[in-house]
Write a protein that binds this DNA or RNA. Structure first.
Lengths: 150, 150
DNA sequence: AATATTAACTTGCATTTTGCAAGCTTTAAA
DNA sequence: TTTAAAGCTTGCAAAATGCAAGTTAATATT
């Protein structure tokens, strides 16, 4: 296709993503899942930024409704629930890593280590794959104990 | 560096970007600049999504304060102002194109043409460069008439 | 030179969303 | 059988948003 067409992106393509992610907290929830391994309500609630519990509940609900996140019972502990990213949610990794990279480049007080910055700069696609795989392993871990018990 | 470290991204790197972009309208303003060539207040105000004028004013101000956008007088028309993306703002192109791509992949009612979707899928970096160059040309155009007149 | 018009905001006010604290419900441990 | 933990829900004050109307400064018109 001619590159000319690639410039004809207009209105629609962003309204969908912004209806879902167009606020601070939704993004932070997904980041906490990916990078901090959060998968329980209380873990999100204890996050550094301090989400209000009602906002947290409504955002998790929205993410589940839109298919970015699934909710299931923790097989190890019936009074806990586990939240995990679906493939749809995982497909946001590149966007999020680019935003992290941008912050690293432009935030005068960034706390992103230079090694990671350099890694994102030179091996972006590899970083995406790495995060994806680490997350998959982590999710397995969340269910493994139960399997061992049975 | 070891990939292990790349997983240690924690809290900070996203709070900066989300403090600036953590709302629907800011993103849409930048998108309108990049893809629809908007550079005047009224053009943003007339945008399909319908920003309230006070919100628009506050968001443009914020973008200028954070250095993503510059404001200058239109050399052709002294009662108009021109808003343009800085390098810092342009560095968001990859993030935005990934979000567009995500929308194209996951919005059941997407209006993103398949050709563009495919282009983003196979030539992402090229698409980023293309958008960047088109934008630079367009900005030149905004000032050119004045140069011709003088 | 005086008046009208255009573009970019600003302001006031009603509505909506957020944030905080407290309470409720279900599950499991003691 | 009571106690506690985890995941929410509810009520209310504070902040952000959206809409309509007004203000200001730079042209264009008469």
């Amino acid at each position: 296709m001619s590159p000319k067409n690639s410039y004809k992106l207009t209105v629609c393509p962003m309204t969908y993503v912004l209806d879902i992610l167009g606020d601070k907290w939704t993004f932070l929830i997904i980041r906490d899942m990916l990078f901090k391994g959060c998968c329980r309500y209380q873990q999100f609630a204890d996050s550094d930024e301090g989400v209000a519990t009602n906002i947290l509940a409504s955002r998790l609900k929205k993410l589940v409704q839109h298919g970015l996140v699934t909710q299931c019972k923790d097989p190890n502990n019936g009074r806990q629930k586990l939240y995990h990213l679906t493939d749809k949610g995982l497909d946001l990794i590149p966007s999020i890593l680019h935003l992290v990279k941008w912050s690293g480049n432009h935030d005068p007080e960034t706390c992103l280590p230079e090694t990671i910055q350099a890694y994102l700069e030179s091996n972006f696609d590899q970083a995406v794959e790495y995060v994806r795989k680490e997350y998959a392993q982590m999710c397995q871990g969340n269910h493994q104990a139960a399997a061992t018990v049975e």
